[in-house]
Design a protein around this nucleic acid. Sequence first.
DNA 1: CCAGACGTTGTT
DNA 2: GTCTGG
DNA 3: CCAGACGTTGTT
DNA 4: GTCTGG
Length: 222
Amino acid sequence: MCGRISTANISPSTLKAQFRLESIPSYLQSYNVAPTLQIPAIRQQDNTRTLSSLRWGLIPHWSEDKGTGVSAFNARVETLTQKPFFRDPFKSKRCIIPASGFYEWHKQGDKKQPYYIYRADKQPIAFAGLWDAWMEKETGEAIESCSIITVPATHRMAEIHDRMPAVLEAELFDTWLDPEFKETHVLQDILRALKPDVLEMYPVSSYVSNSRNDGEKCIERA
DNA sequence: CCAGACGTTGTT
DNA sequence: GTCTGG
DNA sequence: CCAGACGTTGTT
DNA sequence: GTCTGG
């Protein structure tokens, strides 16, 4: 997955009532390596789902510093169980990142045509993610951060790009968020289970390609 | 064993 | 923390 | 990733 | 060409 996400227009009714989705900033969007971007995320703590804000760019708990060095904005589904970076979070620190849509760029020769991708049913997209908590030894400063999992692009998505974010359907939220559920193969299957035609897309103006730009114009059909 | 990396995307 | 390369 | 900048001196 | 900011 490359490009930007947009969490605009998420309504509280969409990801089921138990997910509190108020106070999500409109048009929160940025390029995916921006290490300071806070994005909304749902996770499970003490049998309660909570919505909070996580820094995009997972800093593993063992990292020496929070600086530019060790962080990852995406995690490949193929290697979740192998990479030390993600293996522990995959076992017990799974999260959902809601967004109204995201962008990918289709390369045709020199041209890069951005597309806006969203759910056909107009509900928010639930990205599958992993999070971790990192703490500064001396100050006790805590930073919680996350990665969005990517899968091979399928269906119409494959026409514009070879990877895409893992998208979960509502009936899978419970399993995905349950930290006691440890059947990794089942979890990996879940990530790749998206059915055709769930996502739709249309081309948008390259206005969106400048990450300083924001607002309605980013999702206007081009 | 120790030291050093640990991630992805895309582009070449 | 844990894996890999040397 | 993409778009845009890419420099210094001095003054506030 | 290559780095930085977002």
